[in-house]
Design a protein around this nucleic acid. Structure first.
Lengths: 128, 128
DNA sequence: TTGACTTAGCGAAACCTTTCGCTTACATTG
DNA sequence: CAATGTAAGCGAAAGGTTTCGCTAAGTCAA
């Protein structure tokens, strides 16, 4: 038995999560509209994917409502943190904060973002 | 046809890459020793995985030597950057530096790492 | 050269993810 | 209550990853 919520979401799963993060709680039809736009897949496929994701604990749903309303089980921020932690764990052997930053460093970061980042580092230092 | 080097490495692939990053260039036997230690898989499996990864462009090898010597096609740093960029692209819609930092923020980061990070931010600012 | 051992590779099985056809259930409206 | 349209779900096909058995080729020492 697979542990709930323990696995990296697969490609399509991540795509659906992102739709849910953007749209907020939504019925299948709306999720499907977005997914089909990007991939041209069938309605059944979306339903099935959501059911798989439900089993894996990646999404939750309200079954009282009709149609059922789905939502992401994690916030985008939590997910980002989780994926990132796993990434670091897998690529390096755990703590590798500065190296990850280095990875980011070549990307485009606005002045604003850099300032925000500084603030964050200050906070982090306070805590540790 | 799949573009070379365009896909996220799968679980086992990443495991092998990490072994190669740690060990440096190595013959199958040594890679296998490490992999088997962690997973208990067969020698054939390691050979096959390496051949798959060769096709995908994730590893390279020197065929003149016997036994063949494999090496990672990317440095750990490059890979980390690539994966991270893809992660950001997928979880957010691109640039999300501060959010990624936030993701990191709750993790354990040493004073040293935080200082290094600050230096990096200074450099980044200089460039932009 | 033969036998024992190491290395390389193929092809298929096993397994997981993604896709969809088809069926059943539900709701609405004439 | 039909008839029509929407929603949910199952099971199997299609496609990708991971595993390994088996074969063949290469190496080395007696």
């Amino acid at each position: 038995m697979r542990e709930l919520g323990s696995s990296q979401p697969t490609a399509v799963e991540l795509e659906i999560l992102r739709i849910l993060w953007e749209l907020g709680s939504s019925p299948v039809r709306e999720i499907h509209a977005r997914l089909a736009e990007a991939k041209g897949t069938n309605y059944s496929t979306t339903v099935k994917m959501l059911s798989v994701m439900l089993t894996k604990g990646l999404v939750k749903r309200n079954e009282d409502a009709t149609p059922h309303i789905y939502r992401a089980a994690m916030t985008r921020e939590r997910a980002a943190k989780k994926f990132l932690t796993e990434l670091i764990e897998k690529v390096y052997d755990g703590s590798a904060m500065s190296l990850v930053l280095q990875a980011l460093a070549s990307g485009k970061a606005s002045k604003l973002e850099i300032d925000e980042a500084r603030k964050l580092l200050d906070e982090m230092e306070g805590k540790s």
